[in-house]
Design a protein around this nucleic acid. Sequence first.
DNA 1: TTTTCAATTTGCGCCAGCGCAATTTTTATC
DNA 2: GATAAAAATTGCGCTGGCGCAAATTGAAAA
Lengths: 232, 232
Amino acid sequence: MDIDARMSVLERSPFFASADRDTLKHAAETASELPIAKEDQIFRQGEEASYSYLLAWGRVRLDQTTSDGRNVVIRYLGPGDLIGTVAVLRRKPYPATPVAVEDGMTLFWSAEKKAMLIAAHPVLATNAIELTGSRLEELQERLREVATQRVERRIAATLLRQVRHAGRRVEEGVEIPFTLTRGEIAELTATTLHTVSRTLAAWEQEGILSGKRASHLVITKPHRLVEIAEQE
Amino acid sequence: MDIDARMSVLERSPFFASADRDTLKHAAETASELPIAKEDQIFRQGEEASYSYLLAWGRVRLDQTTSDGRNVVIRYLGPGDLIGTVAVLRRKPYPATPVAVEDGMTLFWSAEKKAMLIAAHPVLATNAIELTGSRLEELQERLREVATQRVERRIAATLLRQVRHAGRRVEEGVEIPFTLTRGEIAELTATTLHTVSRTLAAWEQEGILSGKRASHLVITKPHRLVEIAEQE
DNA sequence: TTTTCAATTTGCGCCAGCGCAATTTTTATC
DNA sequence: GATAAAAATTGCGCTGGCGCAAATTGAAAA
């Protein structure tokens, strides 16, 4: 990737929203590239946060593992999303493990370079607050769902969230453009894979959605899913 | 409160960590004061975020209400904590309703004054990222607990979290220095008040803690509570 | 094409904890 | 001191969904 290609990637990221050409150029010049292969762990939960990343392309799942070995999926990341930035800025260990769900490319900066970038371009600090705030809002929403809703509604809400983040119109409806297993949905939803499987099988039977394994989920009746997410 | 008293309040807040005298003075001079009485709502969830607050003294509970009228307690705030700042900086509606659990005092700034403060003193932007990141981390922790743990462990973890934030050593153990009803613990823990009551009654019987209603909870055997929080 | 393995599905027993109902306790107000 | 109301407690029936087990499916590797 040459500087122009990098700048093209960066200007599409919300972290660089309203950033001028100088900022983009500075960031592009100081970045390094790391290709990622499916199932690569970019870093591990608990490690010292030395580098912060920006996903150029590909998809990444953010996992948190509990002390008794269970996994919670924090979110799916797509192109333009930051990885590990808050931990680097806070000088805390990484709180999660990002796992590539498909091949991709990241741009990365050392903690020093990132701090210098932000000091030199205050718009980046503002954008970092916006992005962290946005993640906070999403987590609050998820906590509310888990605290107050039955599983079906939660699954519907979770799928709609992926649609909102990454959905792509296709002929039959809206596609979630990455592989999402029943197990992963379970870990996003605080339930078990069996319950997700039963639910999705019923919805597939009803014509609401289709797809499993390598074939991406396609929501054929999004309005029906919204109804389910909003039922009492 | 004169300028010196305000500066004394501000320098104790993590939002002003590492801030120099000029910064504190600027902030103190541009702040206004709003006393709060028990049960006051400082603002309402969903309202336009016009002011951001810093709690000088007192205690505040941050509530989020769901579309079907249920309540989730997001967190308890104490002296030095910010209220509404992220929403103001993001130019989004307030995501929660802060309710005073006792009489207190806040300092507040309009959105304009706050933005000017932060633009003039970059250390404040850095601190805002730190604080937002810290809240993110706590919410991730809570989501992991709700997703993977039984109620008892969650209640223990929740009480330990209050101890860590606000606990005070007293003769019999550690006191949580504000009123925390069984209903509120339930809303912090994604369970019902009946389940909290049963659990706390058993723990009180076992000598782990004491207190209800106006009398604050006192954890008499904190180590026992840690064991419960960490059991499998 | 065959084999392997992970993902998905399905049956089913079990139970943690929800939620209804009733009672008791505590605090604030008059 | 009496009353009212909110918080706490307790009994108990019920059920959503967990988790075990087994079978089936689909994709990747050989």
